[in-house]
Amino acid sequence: MLMGLLPVLMIVTVGMRRAHEEREDAQSVGPTLAELKAVGRSADPVEEIRRAKQTRRFPVEIRRPTGPPVIELTEPDPLGRMGRVACTTCHSVRPPNLSNQQPSDLDEFHAGMPFEHGRLVCYSCHNPGNADTLRLADGRAVEYPQVMTLCGQCHGPQARDYRRYSHGGVNGYWDLTRGGRVRANCIDCHDPHVPRFPKMIPTFKPKERFLVTTRDDHTPGLRFGGGTGHE
């Protein structure tokens, strides 16, 4: 009985202390803060932020797939229908072949697809029991929109950095009291089958006024053309 009451009591006391603190804050900081705002400076920035956070915060949205992938048919299916089909359309009638490990093992639909993802095989991630879901290492199924859970089980440091915004693209507001954010999903940047970030061609180069050409070696290719234009 006594043991049961203890947590309740603790919650109550903690709650009271919090309320008390907040009152104190309101009393001591309130008027000065208004003053400080007037001159555009803050004495205690952390306090300022804490207060700001009590106000409404905009959501952080992570882009994600809406569901399992669908395939545009390029020719009519055996029943003569066109359109988009789900994975299960085919895979529900074909038993999974666990010996298929690499694209080279495939001789039908997926033949020739690029695949370079460490030593993973198809069913490392795809669920043999339900083609419209994915599968974690412990055998639990994961829906496609939650694909990041699947990535995170191997890529721990990246998943941690992602949670802390040290990995992955962001758009929107740094200040969530003013606006929300949209974040990229793992698969926005990394093709799960070929996760290495693709090579890019830098197309935009600033010119140092006289930089006529760019040479692709160590030496910056700078030439002087006397291009003063107004002589």
């Binding site: 932020i49 915004y165 693209g169 507001y173 200040d175």
Partner: peptide
């Protein structure tokens, strides 16, 4: 309150900005 343009443009997500 918004993020800098260079950060939003970064396709590799290499940039981190904040208070």
């Amino acid at each position: 309150g918004r993020l800098p343009a260079c950060l939003e443009a970064c396709p590799t997500g290499a940039r981190v900005f904040g208070n």
